[in-house]
Amino acid sequence: MINGSKRIPQPIRWAMVGGGRDSQIGYIHRSAALRDQSFALVAGAFDLDPQRGREFGVQLGVDPERCYADYRSLIEGEAGRADGIQAISVATPNGTHFEITKAALEAGLHVVCEKPLCFTLEQARTLKDIAFSRNRVVGVTYGYAGHQLVEQAREMIARGDLGEVRMVHMQFAHGFHCEAVEAQSEATKWRVDPRFAGPSYVLGDVGTHPLYLSEVMLPDLKIKRLLCSRQSFVKSRAPLEDNAYTLMEYEGGAMGSLWSSAVNAGSMHGQKIRVIGSRASLEWWDERPNQLSFEVQGQPAQVLERGMGYLHPHALLDDRIGAGHPEGLFDAWANLYYRFALAMDAANRGDHEQLATLRYPDINAGVEGVRWVERCVHSADLGGVWVDY
């Protein structure tokens, strides 16, 4: 079911902080946000170098007067305009997320923030309190959560196709940092520096992605306790880890594992989730996003394809092109940005009934990501012991 009319009545007036010319993630944000005309990029503070940021903003079609030197002048300048921004996307290093998001929320703006939302659970709860008190939407960019087959997996698990869920195996383990690439790459250098990345590297950078996929697929599965072991195989990265193993025990007795790594040599991306039940299992891999593996004990394995009529209606809502054509990262991100826009528009209108029907990685998802990283680091630093969640 192809939906070619995904629109909200008026695009959200939107700005970016960070995401400049050489930023891969900035390009992804813009491509996703502008895909369905749900957002209009009207301002930004795109670069630490104000002149370079202004030149880049003008290339994007932004009025040079609305290309600001930093997020503070952006928020202040836009607040004085009748056509000022309504939302900000934060695409800056981790260490800045809390202060920028907090300032934007306090100014009455909606926020889309890169993960991790911040460094500590206390900070995350502060942001949540402000967002709720101001009736503002916070979206967190767990991008692949917008893929249709993640919705299909959620529906299959909910209707009992797998039987009782026993195990959840997750990983996001690529190999692109199996050597000290940060010596030549500024984009990687800050990720392995605690001053800018916080208490974790791969746990927060990649591990929280499949963790959120599990939360989408298994909303009733709650972590009871966890055990984490983390390693710095490239020694110069210590105390931050470039590899980590996390075991989780869920309420009710199910078990989970999550492998987070940047040193899985030869792996292109390696983000997978496998849910194992008493009768069947399913598996999704973001490098082959059009396929969902479904394996019933004693029967031939099946591969479910995106866009086919046998899928659940919720897995067909966001189709952008017919079955057989690949949809991937940009489409999944665009689906999330469309949901962010719907939520922001509903909040602006005070439509709490519609807000309650929308599901997207929200402030609660951001809080849980911070909580998980914090507990993993705590467990690992104690020598890899079980800690209550």
Score class of each variant (00 low, 15 high):
residue 34 L to W: 00
residue 74 L to V: 09
residue 65 E to S: 12
residue 28 I to Y: 03
residue 44 G to S: 01
residue 23 S to T: 01
residue 36 D to F: 10
residue 82 A to H: 14
residue 62 V to S: 03
residue 83 D to S: 12
residue 51 Q to E: 14
residue 53 G to Q: 03
residue 59 Q to C: 09
residue 31 S to M: 10
residue 69 A to D: 13
residue 95 G to M: 05
residue 37 Q to G: 01
residue 79 A to D: 13
residue 27 Y to Q: 12
residue 44 G to M: 05
residue 24 Q to G: 11
residue 88 I to N: 08
residue 64 P to A: 12
residue 30 R to A: 05
residue 58 V to K: 01
residue 89 S to H: 06
residue 72 R to H: 15
residue 85 I to S: 10
residue 80 G to L: 15
residue 80 G to D: 11
residue 82 A to W: 08
residue 46 F to Q: 02
residue 94 N to G: 15
residue 93 P to G: 05
residue 78 E to K: 06
residue 68 Y to M: 07
residue 84 G to R: 06
residue 74 L to H: 07
residue 94 N to V: 15
residue 62 V to L: 02
residue 79 A to M: 13
residue 86 Q to H: 14
residue 49 D to W: 02
residue 51 Q to S: 07
residue 83 D to N: 14
residue 33 A to D: 10
residue 76 E to Q: 15
residue 43 A to D: 03
residue 72 R to F: 07
residue 24 Q to C: 03
residue 89 S to K: 05
residue 81 R to V: 12
residue 29 H to C: 09
residue 59 Q to W: 04
residue 90 V to M: 08
residue 47 D to I: 08
residue 46 F to P: 02
residue 53 G to A: 02
residue 88 I to L: 14
residue 73 S to M: 13
residue 60 L to S: 03
residue 41 L to P: 06
residue 74 L to E: 09
residue 79 A to N: 15
residue 24 Q to T: 13
residue 90 V to H: 03
residue 73 S to D: 14
residue 86 Q to N: 14
residue 92 T to G: 09
residue 85 I to G: 09
residue 72 R to M: 15
residue 34 L to Y: 00
residue 87 A to N: 07
residue 22 D to K: 06
residue 28 I to A: 02
residue 22 D to I: 07
residue 49 D to F: 00
residue 90 V to I: 14
residue 27 Y to A: 14
residue 73 S to T: 15
residue 71 Y to M: 10
residue 53 G to F: 04
residue 90 V to S: 09
residue 22 D to P: 00
residue 84 G to H: 11
residue 50 P to E: 06
residue 29 H to V: 05
residue 36 D to G: 00
residue 24 Q to P: 04
residue 83 D to V: 13
residue 30 R to I: 00
residue 78 E to I: 12
residue 64 P to C: 06
residue 56 F to D: 08
residue 84 G to K: 11
residue 22 D to L: 12
residue 52 R to D: 05
residue 81 R to K: 15
residue 61 G to I: 04
residue 35 R to N: 03
residue 71 Y to Q: 10
residue 92 T to D: 11
residue 92 T to H: 11
residue 46 F to L: 13
residue 52 R to M: 09
residue 47 D to N: 14
residue 51 Q to W: 02
residue 50 P to W: 07
residue 70 D to W: 07
residue 66 R to W: 08
residue 64 P to Q: 10
residue 50 P to V: 04
residue 24 Q to F: 12
residue 44 G to V: 00
residue 53 G to V: 04
residue 57 G to M: 11
residue 37 Q to F: 02
residue 67 C to K: 10
residue 81 R to S: 12
residue 61 G to Q: 06
residue 49 D to Y: 01
residue 84 G to A: 11
residue 24 Q to V: 13
residue 39 F to L: 05
residue 28 I to R: 05
residue 83 D to K: 11
residue 76 E to I: 13
residue 41 L to Q: 01
residue 23 S to K: 01
residue 64 P to D: 06
residue 86 Q to G: 15
residue 72 R to D: 15
residue 78 E to T: 08
residue 30 R to P: 01
residue 36 D to W: 06
residue 69 A to I: 05
residue 81 R to Q: 15
residue 67 C to M: 13
